[in-house]
Design a protein around this nucleic acid. Structure first.
Lengths: 260, 260
DNA sequence: AAGTGGTCTAGACCACCAA
DNA sequence: TGGTGGTCTAGACCACTTA
């Protein structure tokens, strides 16, 4: 007997399923439409529910689907483009907006942020490990939807007016910290993007489950004295496309069908 | 009987597991070290293998672990920072490097790319749907590791010298297309980043399984005539941190322990 | 209360890699 | 050939939303 079936590689079922579903979404479904529930879809395709879910997870990761417990699975609208890199350097809250201050507290930053705050200045001179740091939380809303949650770390030492702030924790205090920050001369900034999973607090802010995939945008703000602030912004990876508008802000309009 | 146990919300097992493993990785493991296999880990923690895998998947997504079939699970090195946004605008292959031309063929771009190529120029005037487009594939290698795979779409009409290229498909032809492109005056560029999953061809190029999480970087290159080229670069999300060096290129050095 | 997606189990078999 | 991670199954129960 010859070795039949050398068809190179057997495609995983969930991968094939994903492809089939993806095409079905393009052709037979409108944005906002609800899909049949998982048990029925699994039965219809003759696979276990876990396998079907593996395909749905991929499609959700790609921003094609939106799943909500107790509600169902719906066809997601195209990702919203959110501007991240402003053409000119600017302090948070100055140009890009849609950001809403939520809170500000004094505390110690996580180790990773601490390491970033230490960079830039003359080694060791700039910043001590136990120095007080203001932590400002902001959320960003675009088109009525929470897309990002940010923690902005501002060492008290980087801003002259900061130690004097005595507003109680809350939005007012957050605004006060930002106002003081904006008085400084900004020398430059620095940005990086990576994949992460939502911490519990960010997940709550973004109306997602903990562990949901997010895009982590880390920004360092420099003054002549060194790194004056570090921001870690958590963007919903399922609904957001981060745009870096080096040039004109040409809008991408997809004009998808919308469910009636 | 009072309603005991209103402890807000029961934490999922895999989430708790992830936390425990994460701390163990910080304290008891060095980069490159191999973990016990999945069956043993599951037994040790008293959970089903599927649950253990859910935790490992998260850690891999966050770049903490690296799993290879037939080999095992190892502790991943910190993500490598790869420069994406060059300070000045430039054509592909001009400033940022580590890119290696692989191939170039003539063909029709996918619909999404077509839509991008149509933007920028005076409506409809710029670009017809059935126009020939050169598709250049490049891969990017950083520190001996394939980190990205790119498809660059160049309509023949945007570049005067392009129709004359007759080199056979292959790296030479790719280089020729890039050379012609670099002759043009670049007016500006435009970039966006989003989460995606690796297509089969990109996955092969990046030594990953199809569907692996990737960062999709889409760049539009503008000349006075409109959108002259579109690039879609697929970066490994597990190993890469995309950096946008608006200011100086301060290196983040983690200095992690390395397995002996 | 009914229906949805989210979690979890205890198995099985397969594809891949190294010795 | 033995051990690894990758896929898949057929269930069960839970948390959440909506009516």
């Amino acid at each position: 007997m010859g070795t039949t079936q050398l068809e190179t590689a057997p495609e995983p079922k969930y991968w094939h399923l994903k492809t089939v579903l993806s095409e079905a979404l393009d052709q037979d479904f409108a944005v906002g439409e609800v899909l049949p529930n998982e048990r029925e879809l699994a039965a219809r395709f003759g696979v276990a529910r876990a396998t079907l879910r593996q395909a749905l997870e991929q499609l959700e990761l790609e921003g094609r689907l939106q799943r909500r417990r107790g509600v169902g699975t719906t066809v997601a609208p195209p990702r919203v483009g959110v501007a991240v890199g402003s053409p000119q350097h600017s302090w948070p809250g100055e140009s890009v907006d849609g950001w809403e201050p939520v809170d500000a507290v004094e505390g110690l930053p996580p180790a990773a942020v601490l390491a970033l705050l230490r960079t830039g200045a003359a080694d060791g001179a700039g910043f001590a490990a136990d120095e007080p740091v203001q932590t400002v939380r902001r959320t960003r809303v675009t088109q009525g939807q929470a897309v990002a949650s940010e923690l902005l770390y501002v060492p008290a030492a980087s801003v002259p007016g900061l130690p004097a702030i005595e507003a109680p924790a809350g939005p007012a205090r957050a605004r006060a910290v930002l106002r003081e920050l904006q008085r400084l001369a900004l020398d430059g900034q620095d940005r990086s993007v990576e994949l992460g999973s939502a911490r519990a607090d960010d997940a709550r802010e973004l109306d997602r489950l903990p562990g949901a995939p997010v895009l982590l945008v880390t920004t360092r703000y420099f003054t002549a004295a060194g790194t004056a602030a570090v921001s870690v912004a958590t963007y919903r990876a399922d609904t957001c496309r981060l745009t870096f508008g080096d040039s004109g802000d040409v809008e991408i309009t997809h004009e998808p069908r919308v469910a009636s």
